[in-house]
Amino acid sequence: MKLKFIAAALTALIPGMALADWPERPVTIVVPAGAGGGTDATARMLAERLREKFGVPFNVVNQGQGGGVVGINTIKSADPDGYTIGVIYNFAHYAPMGQADFNADDFTAIAQYNFDPAGFNVRADSEWNTIGEALDAIKAAPDAYSIACGGGCGGSWPIATATLMSQWGVDLSQVRIIAGQGAAGALQDMVAGGFDVVPTSVPEAGPLIQAGRIKSLAVFGDARLAAFPDIPTLAEEVGLELSLGAWRGVVGPMGLDQDVAAELEAAIGDIVEDETWQNQMSERGFGIQWRDADGFSEFMKSEEISVREIVSTLGL
């Protein structure tokens, strides 16, 4: 009895050893975002399915403090024993902006399950009717327009817009990117005349688009969104094959046991194929994108390089 206890204690202490029985107890999914938001919603949908698959609870723990810094740090510094994993999203900007020291190498990639393209929103009465007109105008006078970033200015939507502008040859160092009060706050501020452009996910802007207050000139994805068939893609409008926006995936701390990672990867792969889960996601306006562990790891590394370039040009 005592021996058994010591063995169990040792197993807990030495990562990667004797994890064959994983999971023996509930698994914690750290969500670096507050309860009720988009990242939280997707994580809970995933957690529910993972519980069904493995027969132990997958408990969502929200740590949204400091724009996610606290939660991401919890994932990074967790024991790699498979009992703490996390949902992660665009995080490459934290390090160059001096907010936290996170690198793609700090995490074991498990799988990406979501991607939401950015939308380029302007006021309904804006003089721009196409993304091409908007980009040309901004290129001609980069400091004449104010562009809002919903949350942090290094986050997914402003970086997507900045990447597009840099491809168009806009002088990024002159562009005025201004912090707004969250996506909803920034959109409302734009309606009130405060901003010229507010990039967000299209579903976030949906109610105001339907109300005829704002228009979205382009969606930064491969195809038009089913829920917003009138918004053209960048490829259609300006011939740029770009896929820019927010992504979400599951990771563990560095050094996570390979077998555990593989089991989770396979399980999430099954979930992403599941039709009811897909419906649940699309009902709430979330896009689905699958990348396996290797693809996801590659993606995070390449994004780290490109985002950090943009951040330094913007001077954030």
């Binding site: 403090q65 606290v70 902006m97 907010q99």
Partner: peptide, 24 residues
């Protein structure tokens, strides 16, 4: 305390990651 709301710079955090989130 925490990340300033405009530029996202750390303020009064003393390098402590818990303080980055501010005093809730």
């Amino acid at each position: 305390v925490g990340l300033d709301p405009v530029f996202g710079q750390q303020r009064f955090t003393f390098g402590n990651v818990n303080l980055v989130g501010g005093l809730a």
